[in-house]
């Protein structure tokens, strides 16, 4: 009996949480139709986009290099110059660029948003905003969401180029490929749809990262421990949602 009660209350708790998140997203969309705090938006573009570039670039560079080695040694080495370059390009642009970039940014940005807004919540700064006739969804949440939705595709665009270059560098330096032929093969196999699908995914991941960071920050309770828990929940939930939504989007974009 106790098991049933616990299971039931867990399910109800989950449904409540989903409902609260849905309302939070609705309020954020509503904020988009009101006042835009452009200064806050540009500050977030720098914080979310520009400052994430080094970590995304490094991740992508090493992933591209590792992928080239795996394909070369793991597969048939016959005609490997064509296979390695094409799989590295497709793998990076379609999957690894957006997914790894998204997860790395989730760790950096979602945590930062949750910690910042969580601290503002527990120190009553969000209440203070309301008493100063300022809607916190307009002032805090929407600029972050918009900045993340715009920044992530740009970051992933850079990640695509750097990842492919990582594969090229390893191919030329370690595997003995001809650099020009490698790039020609990459160009020949890569289609605009591959790149665009990755950028669409990145935009969705940007939304997930910023919404989960803001939602958990806004719902922080207690002191430092509460903010720490919110930060952890923001990173975990955004990482899981990135992987789940990636599967759904891959199905939608490529199954046809």
């Amino acid at each position: 009996m106790k098991v049933l009660v616990n299971t039931g209350s867990s399910i109800l708790g989950f449904i409540q949480e989903v409902g609260r998140l849905f309302l939070f997203i609705l309020k954020t969309f509503k904020a988009a139709t009101s006042r835009w705090y452009l200064k806050n938006f540009f500050l977030q573009i720098i914080s979310i986009g520009y400052l994430s570039l080094p970590v995304v670039a490094l991740t992508s560079f090493f992933t591209g290099g590792a992928l080239a080695i795996q394909i070369y040694y793991g597969g048939n080495q016959f005609n490997s110059e064509v296979i390695v370059s094409s799989i590295v390009a497709l793998g990076i642009t379609r999957e690894l660029g957006p997914v790894l970039g998204g997860i790395v940014v989730a760790g950096r940005v979602s945590a930062a948003i949750a910690a910042e807004l969580g601290t503002m919540k527990v120190t009553e700064q969000i209440d203070a905003l309301r008493t100063l006739s300022t809607d916190p969804y307009e002032y805090l949440v929407f600029p972050r969401v918009l900045a993340a939705v715009i920044s992530l595709p740009i970051l992933v665009g850079f990640a695509d180029i750097i990842g492919i270059m990582g594969g090229w560098l390893v191919g030329v330096q370690s595997l003995g490929f001809n650099g020009t032929v490698y790039l020609q093969n990459t160009e020949a196999f890569l289609e605009s749809g591959d790149i665009i699908s990755g950028l669409i995914k990145a935009s969705v991941f940007g939304f997930i990262i910023s919404i989960m960071g803001s939602y958990h920050g806004f719902n922080s309770k207690g002191g430092a421990q509460g903010v720490g828990r919110s930060t952890m929940n923001a990173v975990v939930s955004s990482s899981i949602l990135i992987l789940a939504s990636n599967y759904i989007m891959t199905n939608l974009l490529f199954s046809s």
Partner: peptide, 12 residues
């Protein structure tokens, strides 16, 4: 309405 919060609630 002006409000003075317990901890100040200044925007850091």
């Amino acid at each position: 309405i002006g409000m003075l919060f317990q901890g100040g609630a200044l925007f850091d």
